[in-house]
Structure formats: structure tokens, C-alpha cells
């Protein structure tokens, strides 16, 4: 068998300079057609960025591009939706409102709706109304992948808002409701796991909510994600107690591993007695316990460094379950 080509030759486009200088929002779709039809990822990224420039902060142009997303081919759609997402105009209330409406339009196929909703990921904040609509939509059994994207949008905007204003509570509340009420395991996992990107310190209400997930969620991955979030609760004592209580009845070794390692993230070396008890309940955790003990004894305190110092970050084979 002959060897595969190591590299693909790039494409240079004759007349692209004229395209760049002369293109307008009105001519973009027609002019860009041959480029969009090509198998050239580089020129497609250029088109996305150029379209973002053309949209600028103009609500009319943004609405025009949003209309294109209804009937665009798959590669075209990607360029249009991503250009919208990165535009200034996406922050104009009338634009974001229209995007939300289109994302929920049942006439569109689910994957397209997911893409439209994802164009809201760059919003600086969500109004209570928009947040409520996205959450209800994510919980709707008929929403499918679009519901999954809606949950992600809530999480992404939570991150944006939290960075700016330290505000996570209304988003966390909605993510918890999706994570406990959606019938789709993937949507629940999206809602339960994405707080890790914001790393908010949990208040009493969120702590109670995620603690409940440890005993009610059917999917082991979802229970593990809840333990991950709980490790940043403001009430460390309560979290340690919750983890200690949840360990023995928990039958899944991967969830036990979550409760074990996130005890350390919650309370540092003060968690070692709780972890020692867990290792008594399940002797498979003895070597891992000794590893944590060794690391803390060496003077390491920062959980990030504790994690890096572990002899094995996946001692129970939990990362890959095909």
C-alpha cells in the first residue's frame, strides 16, 4: 500500500483580493458560493471572519444572515452561524431575540436549531425570560440535540456573566433543573457537568441541589459530575459529610472515585481521614489513598498540583468506556 500524502497542498484563490475589497452583505452569499463549495477549511474560516466584519453592529444585516441559516447547505450554515456568533450585532436585543425564536422553530431540523442556539453562546448575559425559555426547551423531550445545545448555551453565558459580575446563581438554578428533569441522559450530563467551566463557589441552595443528584441521578457520569461541582461548595464540612455518606451505597467504582478525589478538592489534606474511611470500605482505594497521603506529606497543597502528582490519574479505568 502506498503511503498517504503527509500534507494537503493549499489553495490560492485568484481574484480573492477583489472579493475582499468589493464584497458587501448583499453580494456575500452569491460571491462566496464557489469558496463555500470548495474543500478548503482555510478559506472558509476567512469567509466566517469577513462576514463577521460585514455584519458589524448592524441589526438589519445580522437578521439577513440569520435568515440565510434557514436554507443554507451544511458548510454554508457553519460559516453563517459562526459569523453571527462572533459579530457585535449579536448583542443587540432584537437580534438575540430573533435568534432565540429561530432556534426554537420546530420547522427547522434539530441540528440546525442546535447551531442557531449555539450562536447565542457569546451573549454577555441572559434575561430571566430568555433563560426560562432555553431551560424549558432543554427539558422538552422533543428538543433532542437542540435541547443539548440550549443547556450548553446557558452554561456558556453563565461563564461570561460570572467572569464579569460574579453572577452564577440563576443559571446554576436552571442547569440543576435541566440536570434533574430532562429525560435525555446527554442533556442532563451537559447541564450537570458544564458548571466545571465556570467553577462557581456553590451557595447552600446549589449545594443541596447537587447533593440530591448524587442519590437520584441514574447515570454514573452525571453523579460524578455532581461530585465535581460539590467540591467547590462554600460549605466544605457538609460536602465531606455528604461524600462520606454517599460512598458506601454507591455501587459504581467510577462514581466512588469521584467522591474520593473530590473530597480532596473540597477540603485538601483535611479530607484525608474521610478518604481513609472510604479506602476501608473499598480496599481498591488503598493504593490511591496512600498516593494522596504521600503527596500532601510532601508539602503540596494546590489541588491542581496534587492531581498532577498522582501516580495514575485514571486508576479505575473510568475515562474510556466505549
Amino acid at each position: 500500500m502506498a503511503g498517504a500524502p503527509r500534507y494537503d497542498a493549499t489553495t490560492c484563490w485568484r481574484d480573492l483580493e477583489r472579493f475582499n475589497e468589493g464584497v458587501s452583505i448583499d453580494t456575500f452569499r452569491e460571491w462566496a458560493a464557489p469558496l463555500l463549495a470548495s474543500r478548503d477549511p482555510l478559506v472558509r474560516m476567512y469567509l466566517k471572519e469577513r462576514l463577521t466584519e460585514l455584519i458589524g453592529n448592524d441589526a438589519g444585516r445580522a437578521s439577513q444572515v440569520l435568515e440565510w441559516t434557514r436554507d443554507a447547505g451544511p458548510k454554508e450554515f457553519k460559516v453563517f452561524a459562526m459569523a453571527l456568533k462572533d459579530s457585535e450585532a449579536v448583542h443587540l436585543p432584537e437580534v438575540s431575540r430573533k435568534m432565540l425564536e429561530l432556534g426554537m422553530d420546530v420547522a427547522l431540523e434539530p441540528e440546525r436549531r442546535a447551531g442557531v442556539l449555539s450562536s447565542l453562546d457569546t451573549q454577555k448575559q441572559l434575561s430571566p425570560d430568555a433563560l426560562g425559555k432555553l431551560a424549558d426547551f432543554a427539558k422538552d423531550p422533543a428538543s433532542g440535540e437542540a435541547g443539548w445545545a440550549a443547556a450548553r448555551t446557558i452554561a456558556r453565558v453563565m461563564k461570561n456573566d460570572h467572569e464579569r459580575s460574579a453572577n452564577a446563581a440563576p443559571y446554576l438554578d436552571k442547569l440543576l433543573s435541566i440536570g434533574t428533569q430532562s429525560l435525555d441522559e446527554h442533556v442532563r450530563y451537559m447541564a450537570l457537568s458544564t458548571p466545571m467551566e465556570t467553577a462557581p463557589v456553590l451557595d447552600a441552595s446549589a449545594t443541596d441541589g447537587f447533593a440530591k443528584v448524587l442519590t437520584t441521578e441514574g447515570s454514573p457520569d452525571g453523579r460524578g459530575a455532581a461530585a465535581h461541582n460539590l467540591s467547590l461548595s462554600a460549605d466544605r464540612a457538609k460536602v465531606l459529610e455528604t461524600f462520606a455518606r454517599a460512598f458506601e451505597p454507591e455501587q459504581d467504582v467510577c462514581v466512588r472515585w469521584s467522591l474520593f478525589r473530590f473530597s480532596a478538592r473540597a477540603a485538601g489534606k483535611d479530607a484525608l481521614p474521610v478518604m481513609a474511611n472510604m479506602a476501608l470500605v473499598d480496599p481498591r482505594f488503598q493504593p490511591t489513598y496512600q498516593d494522596f497521603e504521600r503527596i500532601y506529606a510532601s508539602g503540596v497543597l494546590d489541588f491542581e498540583r496534587v492531581w498532577l502528582a498522582l501516580a495514575d490519574q485514571d486508576p479505575y479505568g473510568c475515562l474510556h468506556r466505549d
Binding site: 457537568s193 466545571m196 467551566e197 460524578g224 465535581h228 469521584s258 485514571d314
Partner: peptide, 9 residues
């Protein structure tokens, strides 16, 4: 993943 918890987003 972060700290062994899968991130799907």
C-alpha cells in the same frame, strides 16, 4: 476532561 470528569461541551 477536568480532574477526570468528562467535558462534552
Amino acid at each position: 476532561d477536568q480532574y477526570g470528569t468528562k467535558n462534552t461541551s
